[in-house]
Design a protein around this nucleic acid. Structure first.
Lengths: 149, 149
DNA sequence: TCTGAAATCCAGGGTGG
DNA sequence: CCACCCTGGATTTCAGA
């Protein structure tokens, strides 16, 4: 896990389809050496998976929202996490410090879909309170850059 | 943009290194037909980019936090967005509805790094107020699943 | 669907810390 | 001695016809 590995990881985060030869040129290694490093990065878990960024609006999920959840602990924290993991609208679920228990990032087709989602949370008695912030626009969304490492 | 395209996109979101033949088998198409569809998905912008999910903790970014920003509009909204776009610690920046202007997702090495980041925001007079939620654990983090489409 | 071109993967051997 | 790198060829994947 040296600086070269980090450069390779950053290059892959930008474009995972870059050829090994290209990456090698950028970091000053042969294609096979790069291949071996990527294999190790994946094996060690630094690279969790190869994936694609999709444009959710084009896929019919026009609305993104963040939901601050004040959990009703009678309902069970594990049950809540299981619900979040299983629910297809939940893109992220973080346990956070502060006045709220969890922060959810949800993606739904439209505002009606958001209302349905919130109704589900209420029906299952997970909420003691909640606050929803609808995303109007996203200025930045990225994996990571080298500078921050 | 039919159901097959969505299936392909979902499969790629799970594992972008799956072979065309595998994907073809899953959706009932030949490898080259899949190849052509992926090319179109990328060209049309449904697939924005191929990338990797990295384990930020292993890369030395142990702390993730969400910062709710109440913008001081004298400082300039465009300037703030430019700051967020350029700052390596900012993973996401969303303009949101509700009592706060922006929601930032930041990744830093440690709590000292978080403090430094907040100090930068203050030094540039972007904040009229702010609230920081540190991520204790992340239960869900994924691209998208087919069910939600 | 087929085919040439390109990328990836693997084995072997070499080099430096 | 171990970790890492390079070369060269076999195999797979890819993009266009």
């Amino acid at each position: 896990m040296d600086i070269t590995d980090k450069k390779i990881a950053a290059l892959l985060a930008e474009d995972a389809r870059r050829s090994l030869a290209d990456i090698g040129e950028a970091v000053g290694l042969s294609a096979s050496a790069v291949n071996e490093r990527i294999r190790r990065l994946a094996a060690s878990g630094v690279i969790k998976r190869f994936t694609v960024d999709a444009d959710h609006a084009l896929l019919g999920l026009a609305v993104t929202a963040f939901v601050l959840v004040g959990l009703d602990y009678d309902a069970g924290e594990e049950a809540f996490k299981a619900f979040a993991a299983d629910h297809p609208s939940v893109a992220e679920c973080h346990h956070v410090t502060g006045g709220w228990s969890y922060l959810l990032k949800v993606r739904v087709r439209d505002l009606a879909g958001l209302e349905t989602f919130l109704a589900e949370l209420k029906a299952r008695r997970f909420l003691s309170r909640s606050e929803t912030m609808i995303v109007l626009s996203t200025a930045v969304e990225r994996g990571f850059t080298l500078a921050e490492v």
